[in-house]
Design a protein around this nucleic acid. Structure first.
Length: 485
RNA sequence: UCCUCCUUAGCUCAGUUGGUUAGAGCAUCUGACUGUUAAUCAGAGGGUCGUUGGUUCAAGUCCAACAGGGGGAGCCA
């Protein structure tokens, strides 16, 4: 007997499907619903839509049909035909049913597969099963599309994908608390003469941690390969309990030799527009579903909390409008001249030199300009040591891209390429330049201006899916007190 | 880490001033029906009211601690 091809539902409902009408085919998937003892709604994850399979129940044994329950895996063979019903163009006239995996209703009822609406919190508790739902199917297909769009964007422009280390010995990056990596016995670690843990006896012979950023390593490669990007897991041991933070997340960090801050902004804007454009073009069905979902969520919020634009319009807004660019100093002026400030509605005061608070950033993006905003040239004291010092000696060539609803989605800068100034900045920030000898070395051998930025991948996925909790755009979120699955 | 809110059936939630036998919708089960698509109709089952302690004649309801979760803040991507 010849083994039949397993058609994916996306193929059957797409162009290939039209050529298959009145042909014998096989599909495999999971039952979403079995209505009227006649209609199996079959989903195989290849797309949002399910295939309607029509069963002439008098021709099948009753005990077999009893096993066609929600969540069961089945193989269906039959003829693809034009549908009599109004909800779909084609359907499968079934002539053979094979149960591949049973799902007992009493057990299914305890899960997110029970056919009814669920809260995102309940779905999160069953992260292993939430892939089966429409919402998470759409989110994770789009997550894939965003990842692909990023690789495609850089590849099309001659960037090289660089794998920076996940285990790192450099602890001078100052980008937050790190996770220690060790093979020492936690109960009886070796001690030195001072009674401290002796890490020279550890696996690597020194203290090592999980990476908080691949940027410093990416710079090394950029200063030889020209333009590179990283796309890998990143770890922060911060005790952050918010809808925008994870302990384990994915970050994209391009780094380009010979680029200045202006080039960097142009690249960022092109990049963000390109991703949104890719999803608009290639994820129409999933996006439509999430768009409707978002509108429903918005309609349940009080008027003043609603986002006026729909999800799809928010993406188009990014692709069609130039980002507003202004300096930190100009932003402080805008804030100080705002009615909001004059009416003392900001909880935190606005002064040149402060780190902008969430409320300030949100005001600029959502009230003042109502579009993505790039802020540049921040005070040197509130930014990292590696950012290039401007002529005024007070500010650095930094940039933050602010998105509505998300806040800071990209942070970047032109890097300090001048050895002496970088050396001094290290000392000012309490970093020993000799510990970063390899980084400093690049400034001795043909140093050039260069720039780059970091994008939080999950925050980008939040923006394009309209999900408002970062735990709902990564398959298995790691947060304080939670590493289930 | 701080502020704040929540925890009652498989899920989402009501539960009045502390007072008799704890309620609804959805889901599940049984039956009916069969071109449905959030199927429909009838019936049934389903509860240690987050945990521990306290106040009280009496606690789902009041108080405290702890646990889990949501929202916001800080930190940041």
């Amino acid at each position: 007997m010849i083994k039949m091809k397993r058609w994916r539902i996306s193929e059957l409902l797409g162009k290939e499907g039209q050529a298959l009408v009145n042909k014998e085919i096989e599909v495999k998937g999971w039952v979403r619903a079995f209505r009227s003892n006649r209609f199996i709604q079959l989903n195989d994850g290849s797309c949002m839509s399910s295939l309607q399979a029509v069963v002439d129940f008098e021709q099948f044994n009753e005990t077999l049909l009893k096993r066609v329950n929600t969540a069961a895996a089945v193989s269906l063979k039959g003829t693809l035909v034009a549908s009599q019903g109004s909800g779909q163009a084609i359907e499968l006239q079934v002539n053979a049913i094979e149960i591949l995996g049973d799902a007992h209703p009493d057990d299914v009822q305890r899960t997110v597969m029970q056919p009814k609406r669920h809260s995102l919190e309940f779905l999160r508790e069953q992260a292993h099963l939430r892939f089966r739902t429409n919402t998470f199917g759409a989110v994770f297909r789009i997550r894939h599309a965003v990842a692909y769009a990023i690789h495609k964007f850089f590849n099309d422009r001659g960037f090289y994908y660089l794998h920076t280390p996940i285990i790192t010995g450099s602890d001078a990056e100052g980008a937050g608390e790190m996770f220690r990596v060790t093979t020492l016995d936690a109960k009886k670690p070796p001690l030195n003469e001072k009674g401290e843990v002796d890490f020279s006896k550890d696996f690597f012979g020194k203290v090592v941690n999980l990476t908080v950023s691949g940027q410093l390593e990416a710079e090394l490669a950029a200063l030889a390969l020209g333009q590179v990007y990283t796309f890998g897991p990143t770890f922060r041991a911060e005790n952050s309990n918010t809808s925008r933070h994870l302990a384990e997340f994915w970050m994209i960090e391009p780094e380009v030799a010979f680029n200045d801050l202006k080039d960097n902004m142009d690249l960022t804007e092109d990049f963000l527009k390109n991703i949104c454009g890719y999803v608009l073009e290639n994820c129409a069905e999933d996006l439509k579903f999430l768009n409707d979902r978002d509108q429903q969520e918005q309609s349940q919020k009080p008027q003043h909390e609603r986002i006026e634009l729909s999800l799809i319009d928010r993406l188009k807004f990014v692709t069609e409008n130039p980002f507003k660019r202004l300096t930190y100093t100009e932003a402080i002026e805008v804030l100080k001249n705002s009615n909001h400030y004059k009416k003392k509605k900001f909880q935190y005061d606005v002064q040149w030199g402060i780190d902008l608070q969430s409320e300030h950033e949100r005001y600029l993006v959502e009230k003042e300009f109502n579009c993505p905003v790039i802020l540049t040239d921040y005070p040197a004291k509130i930014k990292a040591f590696y950012m290039r010092l401007n002529e005024d000696q007070k500010t650095v060539a930094a940039m933050d891209v602010l998105f509505p609803g998300i806040g800071e989605i990209v942070g970047g800068s032109q890097r300090e390429e001048r050895y002496d100034i970088l050396y001094k900045k290290c000392e000012e920030f309490g970093i020993h330049p000799q510990e970063l000898w390899w980084y400093m070395d690049t400034r001795k051998f043909g140093t050039v201006p260069h720039a780059g930025f970091g994008l939080g991948f999950e925050r980008m996925v939040m923006f394009v899916t309209g999900m408002t909790n970062i735990r709902d755009v990564i398959p298995f979120p790691r947060t304080p007190q939670n590493a289930e699955f």
